[in-house]
Design a protein around this nucleic acid. Structure first.
Lengths: 305, 305
DNA sequence: CTGAAAGCGCTAACAC
DNA sequence: GTGTTAGCGCTTTCAG
């Protein structure tokens, strides 16, 4: 791997000059003869020189890298892509650290520190996990974006749920059932459902796994609703499967609407769903974190988005 | 960020000693008084010292990082997770470089070189893209694993297709249609289909988008098959949607089998499919690349897996 | 405009 | 057992 020293020797100038030219400082503060500039550039090219980011990072004390820590699951891919593409625009790159039995959140954070990353994104769904973070971690002053995929700010779960349910109401549906589940995100979506039902003076009805002896799907059918609002797509899809099995057609018998995790367009019948803008979330997530990095806030930051 | 120098000062020893202790060399070649060892360790702990991977990388000339280059799409998440988790076991981490309009394969490769990564994985589906790689890249001697998700070795597309079609035959189906598509992977799967049909003396029938004026789905129905072998899940799912629309039931009318990309278990009816072992592919992919890195083959390597 | 020199944080001979 | 010294590849004053 050839270094500036070698190109200095080859071109017959000092390493400093090479450094200046290769960093384009002759276009800024310094003035260097075009002749020299050209020679240096050509030699660098000829020798196949590639800048060493490692050194830049060492000198600066931190690398142009953002670590994403998560228990990676399929739906995160677009988010990550958003981060990665946006990061690239600013010359940053993305490093992944998987949570697993062999790697706790605290370990993952330390790994990120070892690489002297500029920022960290923790994609964790439940807040309890954040509470477990070793307080000592914050002394390093690395900005952390607690990108809970479920938080307001990036994506308003409750508000979007309201939109979805409102839509069902606007179609004339009155008996709207909510197929729910226990989780922070689901809770926010359920709240949206409740808001709209109340606002329209409609009696809410939330069914969950365990709501009925016959199984929740059967319960849905028995309830004979106009529409079913499912708090996430997997739930909606499993309902559709059950209905298919029973030869109950959607939307003939009643409507089913899902919520944002998966390729619902693949279902039969294609599922109406509130799509979460994952890719965009990733893009914005980076912009957000980057602005914190750029501002160089001194105090450790745990951004709540 | 505190350094070994500071630990040395605080503990009243030289930086070398600190380095030795923190690298556990007192447990190997060198002997250092337990007293000193303890003091150093305690001080390091107290000051919140975190090793600097950047420096290790700089000194070694390469970082313990594997770059994954791809146009990231959803189904790759499990592969990446496989890489990431396995890499972690060996103290390596994963860096992502997204291909996009702003980043060509060659640019991505250079970025990887700038970070002095130990190895590169290029997940690209079609071989033409590999042909475009700047030959100069290979001078850096970084092992590249051309993890074509579609290649034999990691996953035998043709053989798996044979298994799938064989299964249909074993169920007594005779008129088996193949719903195909143009791509390297699809081609391999189609070949598997052809092999089995021929072996059983059955007439093959391949339908593709454009095979019929009425649309390929309609063509499938008109063909009145016993079973349909779809070369990938999206194709199968879109067929299921059409069938649902027509109120043609699967598997009552005929069977539909898919092939490996997506959460087919979510479809209604749940789609029988050949699942590709993506996560495992990622794990093996890392092991494979790592063995090349460890062996330190000098010549540039483009592993075909 | 260009070169010498110090330093980033750490490793690894090589002496004391 | 422990300290000195010389880099790793580059940036950045500070003099010429």
């Amino acid at each position: 791997m050839i270094s500036m020293k070698e190109i200095a020797a080859e071109a017959g100038v000092s390493r400093t000059t090479v450094s200046f030219v290769l960093n384009g400082r002759h276009e800024r503060d310094l003035k260097i003869s075009t002749e020299v500039v050209e020679k240096v550039k050509r030699t660098a090219e000829k020798l196949g020189y590639v800048r060493n980011e490692l050194v830049q990072s060492l000198v600066k004390g931190k690398s142009k890298v953002i670590a994403i820590i998560a228990h990676f699951s399929d739906f995160m891919m677009p988010i990550i892509r958003g981060y990665s593409e946006t990061a690239a625009k600013y010359g940053y790159s993305i490093s992944l650290i998987s949570l697993s039995e062999n790697c706790t959140l605290n370990q993952a954070l330390m790994t990120a520190v070892e690489y002297r990353v500029s920022g960290i994104v923790v994609m964790t769904l439940e807040p309890e996990e954040k509470a477990q973070v070793n307080p000592g971690f914050f002394q390093y002053g690395i900005p952390v974006s607690g990108l809970d995929v479920n938080r307001k700010g990036f994506f308003d779960q409750e508000g979007s749920a309201e939109v979805a349910v409102n839509y069902l109401v606007s179609l004339g549906h009155r008996k709207i059932i909510c197929l729910g589940q226990q989780s922070v995100v689901a809770g926010q979506r359920i709240q949206g459902y409740l808001n709209i039902m109340e606002k329209n003076g409609l009696p809410p009805c939330i069914l969950e796994d365990g709501s009925s002896h016959h199984g929740v799907h059967e319960a849905v059918v028995e309830a004979n609703p106009d529409a079913v609002f499912c708090v996430n797509d997997p739930l909606a899809l499993s309902l559709l499967q059950y209905l298919y099995h029973r030869r109950i057609f959607v939307p003939d018998a009643f409507s089913v609407i899902g919520f944002g995790n998966l390729g619902a367009e693949l279902a039969s019948p294609s599922l109406t769903t509130i799509r979460e803008p994952y890719y965009e979330t990733g893009c914005l997530g980076f912009e957000n974190l980057y602005s914190i990095i750029r501002d160089g806030r001194k105090s450790p930051v745990w951004s709540e988005n």
